[in-house]
Each structure stands twice: as structure tokens, then as C-alpha cells.
Design a protein around this nucleic acid. Sequence first.
DNA 1: CCAACGCATATCCATATGGGTATACAATGC
DNA 2: GCATTGTATACCCATATGGATATGCGTTGG
Lengths: 111, 111
Amino acid sequence: MARAATTADAFNAVAEPRRREILDALAQGERPVGELVDLLGLAQPHVSRHLRVLREVGAVVVRDEGRQRVYRLNPQALKPIHDWVAGYRHLWEERFDLLDDVLADLKQEEH
Amino acid sequence: MARAATTADAFNAVAEPRRREILDALAQGERPVGELVDLLGLAQPHVSRHLRVLREVGAVVVRDEGRQRVYRLNPQALKPIHDWVAGYRHLWEERFDLLDDVLADLKQEEH
DNA sequence: CCAACGCATATCCATATGGGTATACAATGC
DNA sequence: GCATTGTATACCCATATGGATATGCGTTGG
């Protein structure tokens, strides 16, 4: 079996830096494909492909506007990622907690 | 150019579900390879490869203990992911903020 | 010193990625 | 109706993935 498809889930879709850039751009507001092409400096077919992946994992939604296709962010699709990493947050912040403890102890000893 | 290497960064490394399982297991405490093999029900070489990827992105560190190799989680490596998704959090929670606003307005009108 | 154990690495395979380029298609303007 | 604009899709290619299996190698035990 090869690597999981990029469309398998948000984790895989978002592993590609360009797709994160697209999402970052859409976080500011919806945009037609052409604008994203200019913003990212990528070939139009390439941007369309990335958008397809993002659509398939539900990270964006499209709307037809004349001959343009306006893409909008659907942030909820990123929640699973947030929920997963958030579980680790206290672990990398632990060292600060420890530092706090040490400082508290030192303060205690002063008295 | 093919897809970015899984070892390119934490985003790519963590896109693989099995590797997330490994991290989840290590979040409970350090473990030798054999234990992870049992926990995940994967072939040993496969687990070793996943651990290699996780090592290369700095998500885990190894320690030699006799003929065992004990792996430990290095949560800081996940921080970039957290930092990125955290920026979107307010967007999927916006609807609750809006609800809050509505409720506040209703309360106002009561008076 | 040799056997067994614990892991890492090498190899083979099927798959699909992302890039590039060409092309198809729908909507608008003349 | 036809040309143009805005996007999507179809191909071709190089690459490296994850699974499976075999094997290398250091450590411990008898």
C-alpha cells in the first residue's frame, strides 16, 4: 500500500505547504481561483488541483459566481487537527510549569 | 516533483495515522520498540520505520538501554502544528460568539 | 564463544503525488 | 454565433511512500 491519499483526511490535505497557504489566504475572506493563482504564484491548474483536494476533505466550499468560482474557507474541517495537537499542548508547556514551581519554591525559601 | 517527504516536517510526519498512534502511546510515557509493536499490532520493521520518520522530524528521541531502544516523546515538535491550526480556532467558534451576541442583545431588550 | 533476543536496515512492489503542459467546458461579451 | 475569459480535467514523469520479507548487528545469557 502506498502513502494515504492527500484526500484521505484533513491531516493529509494540510501536510502540503501550498494548501496551507491557500487556506491562510481564504481565512481573510473568500476568493475566486484567479486571485489565489496570483497570490500563490502557482500555475492555475495546480491551484485548481489543490482546491480540489481541500474541497474533498471539506476544508473549502465553492460557489459559482458567473464564470468565476469563489472559494470559501470551512474552518470546522480543521478542528480534528486542533483537537489532536491540543492534547499535547500541556506537555510542551510543562517545562514552564516546572519553572513556575521552582520559582515558587525559591520564593518560599526566601521567607 | 513528488509529494513532500514524510520527513519534511511535523505536518507530513503526522499525516500518517499510525504515527499519530505511536505518539499517542508515547504520550503516556517512554517505551521500547517491542512494546509499541505489541500496542499497534504492526510488524516490527514497520514500527521501526515509523519511529525513524518521527525521529527525523524531532517528534521523538531514543535512548539505548541494554539491547533495547527506548523512545520518548518530544512534544515541542508538534508546536508548529498547534500554532498553525490555533489561528483558525476563532473561525469555527465564531458561531458561538455570534450566539453570545444574540443572547446579549436579547438580554438588553429585556430591560 | 555461541545462541537468542531486540532493533535497524535493505529490497521489492503498487500506488498516487505534485509539477508541467495541453485541452475541455461553461459563461460572458460582441 | 463566435471569440474570450475563468476553471477544471487529462496526461506524462520522477519520486518516495507503506507494506512485506529477509537480513545485518549489537547485547545479553549460558
